[in-house]
Simulated scan of single mutants.
Amino acid sequence: MSLHDDAVLVLKEYEDQQELRQTYLDHLQTHPDGMWKACEAGHITASALVIDPARDRVLLTLHRKLRMWLQMGGHCEPGDATLADAALREATEESGIAGLSLLPGGPVRLDRHLTPCAWHLDVQYAALAPDGAMEAISDESLDLRWFPYEEVAGVADGSVVRLVEATRARL
Rank of each mutant, 00 (worst) to 15 (best):
R168Y: 09
D122F: 00
L121K: 00
E90V: 02
C117R: 15
A41L: 09
S138R: 08
Q124M: 13
D26M: 08
A118R: 00
D143I: 03
L110W: 04
D6I: 05
D5F: 08
L142P: 05
A153N: 05
T167K: 07
H63W: 04
V161E: 12
W146M: 10
D122T: 09
A41H: 12
A136S: 13
C39E: 00
D143Q: 11
L121H: 00
H27V: 03
L62M: 14
L103Y: 09
V152G: 03
L11V: 05
H27I: 06
T61A: 14
E90K: 06
V164L: 11
I137D: 07
L25F: 05
P148N: 05
G132Y: 06
A7M: 01
A48Y: 07
R21I: 12
D143Y: 08
T30C: 11
D122W: 00
V161F: 09
L9I: 12
D56W: 14
R21C: 12
G154Y: 02
H43V: 02
A156M: 05
D80W: 06
A46N: 04
D85V: 10
V50W: 09
A7G: 03
D143V: 07
G79L: 13
S2K: 06
E13N: 15
D5A: 12
L11E: 03
D5K: 09
T92E: 08
V161C: 11
H27R: 08
V160F: 01
G73E: 01
G154E: 06
D122Y: 03
L171A: 05
G79D: 14
Q18V: 15
D56N: 15
E77V: 09
T115R: 05
V58P: 07
A153R: 07
D111V: 10
H31Y: 13
C76A: 11
A91Q: 04
V123G: 00
I51K: 11
K65S: 14
R112V: 11
K37A: 02
G132Q: 06
I137F: 09
R170H: 12
E165L: 12
A156T: 07
Q124G: 09
L62N: 13
D131S: 15
V50A: 10
L114S: 06
Y125H: 07
